[in-house]
């Protein structure tokens, strides 16, 4: 196999000189240098899709905001990770994520343990800036252990990626487009009837919200399962 030669590239993040390997993304180099960029769909050890747009950054010379998790570094580029423009856009992106589905924190299984909720807190978003969409999706509780509630889904696709890249089953995928998009099993079968699902639960434990959750489980057990899966992802990232 012919591999592209990896070279060292130097550039600036927030005016600080940094270096990284040419196959690295802006986000990876930022993290290596302890520069914080907010993320949501990103999960170390999985491929990057840039679906949530939370990690947008400015690159000098371009008037577009670029997701740092999918943008490869370039020699001499000048990256800004925080500015009034980025802040306004992140707030709007987060508002749209909240308004698109029904995230009623107070009655959610993930209340207090939700990355979407935490992101609102982190970015000081105290109200949603666009009207709520109020669309209702059917809940799939057919599986003996797990539930899929699309009403709480932010379409980050972590579940799809972990099932495909770590478990190797690819039982999950995406159906429909835009605002109607849903996570499905196989050819949109009820979860219990999915032939390719191995019931490993990885999808459940990488879900940032309460869209996928395990039935009748204590917080302690859930934490243990989550830490096992996160450990697997860490090891994958080091390969």
């Amino acid at each position: 196999m012919i591999r592209e030669k990896v070279r060292v590239k130097s550039f600036k993040i927030n005016g600080i000189d940094v270096t990284g390997a040419s196959n690295q993304t802006i986000l990876e180099v930022a993290q290596d240098n302890n520069i914080e960029i907010p993320t949501l769909c990103y999960l170390k050890g999985l491929s990057c899709v840039g679906s949530c747009r939370m990690c947008i950054v400015e690159i000098k010379g371009s008037n577009q905001l670029i997701p740092a998790c999918t943008a490869k570094i370039k020699e001499g580029m000048e990256v800004t990770t925080d500015s009034p423009r980025i802040k306004t856009n992140r707030e709007m992106i987060l508002s749209m994520l909240f308004s698109e589905r029904t995230h009623t924190c107070s009655v959610c299984v993930s209340n207090g343990n939700c990355e979407l909720q935490n992101k609102a807190h982190e970015l000081h978003l105290d109200h949603i800036q666009v009207p709520y969409h109020n669309a209702r999706f059917e809940i799939d509780a057919s599986h003996k252990n797990f539930v899929n509630d699309p009403n709480r889904c932010i379409l980050c696709t972590r579940c799809i990626r972990v099932c495909d890249e770590i478990e190797g089953a690819h039982a999950l995928d995406i159906m429909d487009r835009g605002i109607d998009t849903r996570i499905i099993h196989d050819m949109d079968e009820p979860w219990a009837q999915s032939l390719s699902c191995t019931s490993c639960g990885k999808c459940v434990y990488v879900c940032p919200t309460g869209a996928l959750y395990e039935k009748d489980i204590s917080d302690e057990e859930a934490d243990k399962k989550r830490s096992i899966i996160m450990e697997l992802l860490e090891r994958k990232a080091q390969q």
Binding site: F98, T102, T104, S106, H127, N134, A135
Partner: peptide, 12 residues
Amino acid sequence: ITGNISAMKNLF
């Protein structure tokens, strides 16, 4: 601020 539980009936 969000409608919360009061707004859950919006889905129906």
